[in-house]
Computed example of a mutant assay.
Amino acid sequence: MIFEQTGIEGSYIVDLKQIGDSRGFFARAYCSKEFKEHGITANILQANLSFSKIKGTIRGMHFQTSPFEEMKAVRCIRGSFFDVVLDLRIDSPTYLKWYGIELSQENHKMLIIPEGCAHGFQTLMDDTEAFYLVSKEYSPAHDSGYRWNDNSFGINWPLPVTEISEKDRNWTDYKE
């Protein structure tokens, strides 16, 4: 695997190191040893799948509060989406900064969302699927988020919004 630091402390783009031949390729999609070498020490406790039917759908900006803060490793397995990590860690040098990247079934990249950061994405194609490895089990009592278009963050979403849940539309604005 090839790890590239994003502009967010502790967040990486993980690219596959492909071993290919006429059949296609083989690559490791996850390796706890290599993750630990890059400071990603969270254990994977859950795997999630998200399917969005319509291009322009937004999901986010989600996070879980303490003690259920979670690390996510997110990959697109069908279609494509613009994936965003937002740093909410007050003591972080990248506090309130965001980073976005296109993840697609073609580029096979993975984005690491560190604990204490929010996550969201916008689909760039119809019928898009995201697959997540997550370090904590979902806790409804610790589920939280901020509005996808909160001016405090200034996230530049690539498309007009076509679909968004009532819950995501009604998250509160960020206040320091």
Results as ranks from 00 to 15, higher is better:
residue 22 S to M: 11
residue 93 P to I: 11
residue 7 G to K: 13
residue 43 N to H: 15
residue 96 L to T: 12
residue 13 I to A: 09
residue 67 P to A: 08
residue 101 I to K: 15
residue 45 L to A: 13
residue 130 A to K: 07
residue 24 G to T: 12
residue 9 E to G: 00
residue 42 A to L: 07
residue 66 S to W: 11
residue 79 G to M: 08
residue 104 S to L: 08
residue 174 Y to E: 04
residue 115 E to M: 13
residue 72 K to I: 03
residue 165 S to V: 03
residue 9 E to W: 01
residue 64 Q to A: 11
residue 102 E to G: 06
residue 36 K to R: 15
residue 33 K to W: 10
residue 123 T to N: 02
residue 137 E to Y: 12
residue 111 L to P: 05
residue 85 V to K: 03
residue 142 H to A: 15
residue 21 D to K: 12
residue 124 L to A: 06
residue 34 E to R: 14
residue 141 A to L: 13
residue 85 V to Q: 06
residue 92 S to V: 09
residue 167 K to F: 02
residue 71 M to Y: 12
residue 175 K to M: 02
residue 140 P to L: 03
residue 38 H to G: 06
residue 62 H to V: 08
residue 94 T to H: 01
residue 165 S to N: 01
residue 64 Q to P: 09
residue 138 Y to H: 15
residue 72 K to P: 05
residue 155 I to L: 06
residue 100 G to P: 14
residue 55 K to D: 03
residue 48 N to E: 04
residue 128 T to K: 04
residue 57 T to Q: 05
residue 126 D to K: 10
residue 60 G to Y: 06
residue 147 R to W: 01
residue 84 V to A: 00
residue 138 Y to G: 06
residue 149 N to A: 08
residue 27 A to W: 13
residue 91 D to P: 06
residue 144 S to Q: 02
residue 60 G to Q: 05
residue 90 I to T: 11
